[in-house]
Amino acid sequence: MTDEVRTMPTAGQPQLMRWSVVLPGLAALTCALVLPQFANAYVTEVATTALLYVVLCLGLNVVVGYAGLLDLGYAAFFAVGAYTSGILTAEFGFNFWLTIPVAMVAACVAGIIIGAPTLRLRSDYLAIVTLGFGEIVRIIARNLDITGGASGLIGIERPEIFGFRLMQVQHFYYAFLVLALLTAFVCLSVERSRMGRAWFYVRYDEDAAAGIGINRVTAKLQAYMMGAVIASVAGCLYAAKMTAISPESFTFNQSLLILLGVVLGGMGRIPGVVLGAVLVALLPEVLRGAGTYRPLVTAVALLAIMLFRPNGLWPDKRV
């Protein structure tokens, strides 16, 4: 048993590039870059879904893994992004790229509306409120005219970049890859900064954090909003890829799947969360052969993981 733990390299300090981390990372990135050249459309489609979950899980990890807030309605922010972008492009003829900042602002506003009154609560209550929020957003989307009701929104325009229109699976694969890398970079930068440390302080001991001068409500609200913004950007790209969205894409089940990815891989650290996200996306495909036994096999696999690796498959050493 050793007491040495990973220190967070801080800005300004020459960072130790550990080959044990860099090499597998580069190898994974290379595989990700060339995958569509060799894989068929089905594999690329599954891989694109996996990348979508990577983005969503990284976003939820800010809330759950960094700040320790249990959020059971995360898909709501995904929905806010998807519907904002979808409505603006399909109904108002907005350029896709312009809808992203609007969706980010919308997610922030939604985050403040839910977060400001509830983040004062301890986490169990927060879980219930977020669960309710997730359902409210889905039911609103089902019942409004502008969101297309239960049948959803159709005819969302495909985005164009420098005169090139994203059409095929491969195009969206690369778009999601860029978004996933960007999200990982953003999360890593914040994790190693003053605000990131503040989230960990609050997660480990709220009272001690307040005692050394951290405003716990503001810190939690910022984590919640950052998570919301990441989900909304993912939602924009998702809407553009699908060209049609319906309330059924944003159910409680979706929130649970994202949470599962975070917890499965090992919350708090980016490599673990990426692994968990990929597993969540791949599991249903891998288990396709199991037919109707699929939920049973999934449940047994999850129970086994929680029994033998309670901190996740690739845990944060500090847990």
Partner: peptide, 10 residues
């Protein structure tokens, strides 16, 4: 009331 899982410096 330390943040036990974090480093001494943190």
């Amino acid at each position: 009331r330390l943040f036990k899982e974090m480093t001494v410096l943190e």
